[in-house]
Design a protein around this nucleic acid. Structure first.
Lengths: 348, 348
DNA sequence: CCGACAGGTGTGAGCGCTAACAATCCAGTG
DNA sequence: CACTGGATTGTTAGCGCTCACACCTGTCGG
């Protein structure tokens, strides 16, 4: 009954039990903090564990408890500052709760890629997943799929029937637009993000709503893809409109949907000889670390990514534990950061 | 012997076997692609799997095979562009190899935090780990620890006895410095990163070596912490030196250890009325997406983060499979990207 | 016509752990 | 001093899977 050849393999609970002179079940009890274990016994077991360098086998545990204590994260482009920060927040929060986080990066945002990612996570038996899927198509795909575990979105839809956490993008856009109008600008132009992104749509919506509330007919929307280069192109167009100075085309303020594009816009304006903020005020969104050092320092909207990460883990755990009260949507408030790029004395 | 109450639980291999009219072992054989299964049998099993929506239980599999098919990643600051990109590369590569990646974010870079992270990963039975630990203290801590699985570093030391992948930082710094000297600058100033970072040290080393090879006594090193703000402070100092114009202090070129700090430097110079590149040429390192849109577009060194991620997974798998040939250090070559920030006609 | 030898399949024994129950101990009670 | 019940411990049976083996078929050579 004894192993013929003692292969080098990690000690098991039985080994610890033998070492401590108790049953394996007592070892289990000590490990799971069961109250009814005599203090002296507990000490013996603890000492034996220490001596042998024992650790519980998570696979065996998961098998019998049906809990992997692992959660999955699906992220679209974790190279961008926003998703990366959210990811970091998620990870910390999950670890504090005793969960391991397994991340899957999506190649493309397509619906099929998402399905594959969920499949991959399901194959490893995650207990739940957070999907950082800010694209409309992804969220719609998510709504169609029925993974065998709860899923919570970040920046996903609050329209669909999926629980999630998101920043109040619309409010952020409103703050920026109101700020620019308050500075005396007659209207505010807008460089939007990709059409498919919900965040982009919400920001555009907030901007449009404020203008309309002020009785201003929103100018034509320029569109980029979040990249500095696309912002640069939009900036060239804005510069052209500014210099043309005929009719309604005059541009004095622009709300750019993210900071990276704003950098491109600023560059294009500068190249065209348009001064910021004197001739055109520019505001961004995200407050990336570089934003305060743009030429000029950028007025933008700060997102509390850590909070978003934390809240989403919290929400997901509620769904895993089954204590969730229906489909909840948590909204985090943004903060307007005013810097030099919108600070001008005169206007219009 | 039959379950009294049929609880809602996922189908098992036995369920599939019953459905297909074979033994569970045959199902297992089909699933693992064993050759000796009759085609018709295989089809029946496959159909049954499909019908029941069966998936293998990874915990049970891991328990018996002693392989979790999970690898861990320890990342220091995944909000920075470099680590984030490496992470993304890692993830894709690992997934292609059929592994799940579990990431642990380090709170502080301290040695104890690293130990905790390894512990966390060990508790979940990862088969190996990649440590993105560019700080000297972390790598030293790593060398001390003996986790129960192979560990590969990214940007860790090639001096220590740990396998790893890294960019040839020193070469990158050499390229930049040579480039600036070739443009006619008498010397090149340097804004270094934090002292504790290996990358920082290697970049400084490359810079120093080139100057000495050219018989130039390296000027005093300014130091930042990778942040734009610290670059800004360094830039103020450089501006002061430039404007002073006495003796050896005149600054005409600066190699800044990363792009973010370079942004700060550029800002400080501009504020002080120092023109770039006409009066002072500036170069960075990393080639973040924003770099091409800095005022002026930044000359910098591009790192192929995807390649780094891929190679490190490859290396780690070799160690897991046991096919690794000793302690290998893979070095990836950087690429100099010349932009306007160093393009001037005249010099000195 | 029989044994050998493949392919194809089933059986049994665990992997290391937890959950349920059974067994034991001991202080407090009538 | 036997009796009860809670505290403490041990025993047993799986969780769902893979591995090693045993067991079947046939087909082939002698």
């Amino acid at each position: 009954m004894t192993r013929p050849t003692e292969v080098l393999r990690p000690p098991t609970m039985a080994d610890v039990a033998r070492e401590a002179g108790v049953s394996h079940q007592t070892v289990s009890r000590v490990l799971s903090g069961h109250p009814n274990v005599r203090a002296t016994t507990r000490d013996q077991v603890t000492a034996a564990i220490e001596r042998l360098g024992y650790r519980r086998n998570s696979a065996a545990r998961a098998l019998v408890t049906r809990r992997s204590r692992t959660i999955g994260v699906i992220a679209v482009d974790p190279t961008l500052y926003g998703p990366a920060s959210t990811l970091a927040g998620l990870q910390e929060a999950a670890r504090d709760e005793g969960y391991l986080v397994s991340t899957v990066t999506l190649r493309s945002g397509g619906g099929h890629a998402l399905e594959d990612a969920l499949d991959h996570l399901a194959a490893w038996g995650v207990e739940g997943a957070v999907a950082i899927t800010p694209q409309r198509s992804s969220v719609q795909a998510l709504a169609r799929l029925t993974p065998p575990f709860p899923v919570v979105t970040v920046e996903g839809s609050h329209r669909l029937d999926i629980p999630g956490v998101s920043l109040d993008q619309e409010l952020g856009a409103r703050l920026v637009t109101e700020h620019l109008l308050a500075a005396g600008h007659e209207t505010v132009w807008h460089v939007a993000g990709p059409e498919d992104w919900l965040e982009s749509a919400a920001r555009t919506e907030g901007w449009r709503a404020v203008l309309e509330e002020h009785g201003i007919r929103p100018p034509r929307v320029l569109r980029g893809d979040w990249s500095p280069l696309s912002g640069y192109h939009a900036g060239q167009e804005l510069a052209g409109l500014t210099l043309a100075r005929r009719g309604t085309a005059t541009v004095t303020a622009a709300f750019v949907a993210n900071d990276q594009m704003a950098l491109g816009v600023l560059r294009a304006l500068r190249e065209a000889g348009v001064r910021t903020p004197e001739q055109v005020a520019v505001a961004g969104f995200d407050d990336i670390p570089e934003a305060g050092f743009f030429p000029p320092p950028l007025t933008t909207v700060r997102q509390d990514f850590t909070a978003i990460g934390r809240r989403s883990i919290q929400l997901l755990l509620e769904h895993i534990e089954g204590t969730a009260a229906g489909v909840e949507h948590i909204v985090v408030e943004p903060q307007l950061i005013v810097r030099a790029s919108t600070r001008s004395q005169d206007s219009a």
